[in-house]
């Protein structure tokens, strides 16, 4: 199969059982990975196209700004390209890629402190309903900032479980921990987040 023939659909990898459309997607992904291992960069481009959105969003939730998220996403894909020969297929490609991205984020956080914060929007939008929209945007920003202040492990668990809809087992595999630890970290992450928001009078449950 030539690399130019590889066309992968955009979006998250399907979790449905083999066969049907999901099975075809998986076959295409396997073919792309095999082509990458032969050094075909076009095949890797197809994999990037498939996973760029979830990886970017994962990184954004870690660093809470576009510039660093963009840099980290590219960094994660570069590391994946370098290491793709060592990918054995024991776990799903998406799990492997998430692990690389999470490690890139953790290293970035270790090197770059204090946290980068989003700047508040100061421009007033004159459209009808714009005020309510701005308020919602403001709340979203505060929640993202609160997430970015969580301890590393709790934040990683929360982002992967809540925003990427992974199973407890998948999160455990990515973070190299047990399912019990994942659940405990998730509990503490949610409780900390709720307390942080509540402490500043911003909670709206």
């Amino acid at each position: 199969m030539t690399s130019s023939a590889i066309a992968l659909p955009l979006g998250l990898a399907s979790k449905s059982a083999p066969g049907g459309e999901a099975g075809l997607e998986r076959d295409a992904e396997r073919a792309a990975i095999a082509a990458c291992r032969r050094g075909e960069r076009e095949a890797f481009d197809a994999l990037v196209a498939r996973y760029q959105r979830p990886i970017y969003r994962l990184c954004y939730r870690y660093v809470n700004n576009h510039e660093d998220a963009n840099d980290l996403s590219q960094d994660a894909f570069l590391k994946a390209w370098r290491a793709i020969a060592s990918f054995r297929g024991d776990s799903a490609f998406s799990t492997w890629l998430y692990r690389i991205a999470v490690n890139a984020c953790l290293n970035h956080r270790a090197l770059k402190r204090p946290l980068t914060q989003e700047l508040p929007e100061v421009l007033v939008d004159p459209r009808p309903g714009a005020e309510a929209e701005a308020e919602r945007g403001d709340e979203a920003r505060r929640v993202r900032a609160a997430v970015s202040r969580l301890p590393d492990r709790q934040r990683a668990t929360l982002i992967l479980k809540i925003y990427h809809d992974l199973t407890h087992e998948e999160v455990a595999e990515i973070l190299g921990s047990s399912v019990g630890t994942v659940k405990a970290n998730l509990f503490h992450a949610l409780a900390n987040l709720r307390r942080q928001m509540g402490a500043t009078g911003e909670a709206r449950s």
Binding site: D45, V147, A189, R204
Partner: peptide, 26 residues
């Protein structure tokens, strides 16, 4: 407490970049 946090998280989506951004990323 946890359900309240989940509700907050669901209202805090990541801003969607421009459609042109994805080509720039690749």
């Amino acid at each position: 407490l946890c359900r309240g946090a989940l509700a907050l998280l669901q209202r805090a989506d990541v801003p969607e970049p421009s459609p042109l951004y994805w080509e720039a990323l690749r």
